[in-house]
Design a binder for these strands. Structure first.
Lengths: 232, 232
DNA sequence: GTACGTCGTCTGTTATAACAGACTTCAGTC
DNA sequence: GACTGAAGTCTGTTATAACAGACGACGTAC
C-alpha cells in the first residue's frame, strides 16, 4: 500500500496568521482611517473566518503597538500625532543608528554589493515613478542593512517600530520620494558600509530618519495630528 | 495619590490579562525551566480557567519574544544562550543608555529625589538581605529612570527587552547583588541625573548593564547555555 | 526478535454559543 | 414637550465542543 498523504501540500498557514497578515496589510494600505474602530465580527466576516482567529490577530497587533484599545476594549487604529512621531523618531534614530553602525562593522563585500544593487533598483523605480513598488523596495533596503548587523533581536525590534509607523509611512514615502529627498542619505549609507565606516553609516541613517520625520511632522494639523493627503 | 509605577495593572479583571500576568510571573520566578513546553490545557487547569484566555496570553507572550514556538506550535520557554545575551545586551545598552540620557535632561528635582529615596530603599533591602524584594525594587528603580525620559514608546520597548531577559534575571540578580556589584553604578546614575549630566548617566547605565551581562555570561556552560544555580 | 500497522491520546486550532456590559431607541408617564 | 426607563442590539469575553495532525503504545505478523 502506498502513502496517499505523501503529497499533501502543507497549507499550514494558520487562519490567525492569515488574519494577522491581512489586517496588517490593510492598515499599511491605509484602508482604515486613524480612529476607526475594528469590530471583531465585521473583520471576521471580511476575512471569511470566525472571530477566533481575528481575535488573536487583533490581540497581537495591540500588544505590538500597531493597534490600540478604545472604549469597551475595542480595537482602534491609532492616530499618529507629532508627539508620538517625536518619541518614535528618537528611538528609531538610536536603534537604527546602532544597526547601521554594526552593519558597517560586519558587512562582507558581497553584502555591500547586494545593497548597492538594491539601491540601483530603487533608483530605477523612482525613474519610472513606480512609487508603490518603491515602498516595498525601500523597506527591503533598510532591513537588508539591519540584517547585516547580525543581531536578530535588533532586527525584530526595528520591525515593531516600523509597524507602529505603518499607516503614515504608506502615504508619506511616495510623496517624500517625489521631492527627491532621502536618496542622498541612502547613497551615503551604502558608501559608508562599503568602506566599513560605522560612524558615517550611523550618521547617514540618523539623517535619513530625522529628515523624513521632519517632513512628516510638517503634515500635521493644528492639533498635532498627522493626516493623509486627500487621494481621489 | 499618584501611581508612579504604571507597570502594575491590577485594574483589569479580564481573565486573559490575569493569565498573562500569572504566566509572566511564573516565568520570571523560574517555575518553568528553559526548554519546557507549556501545554494550553495544563496551564488552563493551573489558572482555573478555560484554554481561551490562556491561549491569548501565550500568543501575546510569543509575539513579545518571551516564549517561543516549538514543535507542533507548542509554547516553550526559550533557552538563554550567550549569543542571545550578547544581542540583547547590545540593544539594551543603546536603548537604556538613551533613556538614561534623556532622563538626565528632563529630570525634575523632585523626581531625582524620589530616585535617591528608591536607592536608599534598595540599600536597606541589601542590608537586610531581602533579595526577593530587592528584585522588584531594582526593577522599579530602573523603570523610574526610564519613565523620566518622557518617552512612552521607549519605556514600552525596554519592558519587552526585560521580558526577554525574565527567566535569567530572577536567579541572577540576587546572586549578583550578594557580590555587592552594581550598586556603584546605581549611585553614579542618580548623581548624574541629579546634576543633569546626561553623558555620565548614560555611561553609568551602560556600565551597569554590561557588567551584569558579563557576570551572567560567566554562568554559561560549554554549549553557551545559561543555567540557574541549583536551588534546594 | 523485529518490523509494521492500528488505535488511543495528546497537542494546537477553529467554530459556535452563551454571557455581560454599554449604547440606542422608543415608548410611556408626568 | 421633556424626562425616564426598559428593551433591543451592539460590543468584547469566555467556555465548550468538534476537528486534525502527531506521537507513542500495544499487538500482530513475519
Amino acid at each position: 500500500m502506498d502513502k496517499p498523504n505523501e503529497l499533501v501540500k502543507l497549507e499550514s498557514e494558520r487562519l490567525w496568521d492569515q488574519a494577522f497578515e491581512q489586517l496588517k496589510s490593510a492598515i499599511y494600505a491605509g484602508r482604515f482611517g486613524p480612529g476607526s474602530v475594528l469590530p471583531l465580527r465585521s473583520l471576521a466576516e471580511t476575512f471569511g473566518t470566525s472571530i477566533t482567529p481575528v481575535r488573536d490577530a487583533v490581540s497581537r497587533l495591540v500588544s505590538l503597538g500597531v493597534l490600540e484599545r478604545g472604549a469597551r476594549n475595542a480595537a482602534i487604529v491609532p492616530f499618529v500625532t507629532t508627539a508620538k512621531l517625536e518619541s518614535l523618531t528618537q528611538v528609531r534614530c538610536e536603534i537604527e543608528g546602532l544597526a547601521a553602525r554594526e552593519a558597517a562593522r560586519h558587512a562582507t563585500p558581497e553584502a555591500a554589493e547586494g545593497l548597492a544593487d538594491q539601491l540601483a533598483h530603487m533608483k530605477e523605480l523612482i525613474r519610472t515613478e513606480s512609487f508603490d513598488t518603491y515602498l516595498e523596495a525601500h523597506r527591503a533596503f533598510h532591513f537588508q542593512i539591519y540584517a547585516m548587523a547580525g543581531n536578530p533581536i535588533l532586527s525584530e525590534l526595528i520591525e515593531t517600530l516600523w509597524l507602529r509607523f505603518g499607516p503614515v509611512l504608506t502615504f508619506v514615502v511616495p510623496a517624500y520620494v517625489k521631492l527627491l529627498k532621502g536618496t542622498d542619505h541612502h547613497i551615503q549609507v551604502v558608501g559608508a558600509i562599503r568602506g566599513g565606516d560605522s560612524a558615517a553609516a550611523e550618521a547617514a541613517i540618523v539623517s535619513d530618519i530625522r529628515e523624513a520625520a521632519d517632513y512628516i511632522a510638517s503634515l500635521a494639523d493644528g492639533g498635532g495630528v498627522i493626516h493623509a493627503p486627500v487621494t481621489p
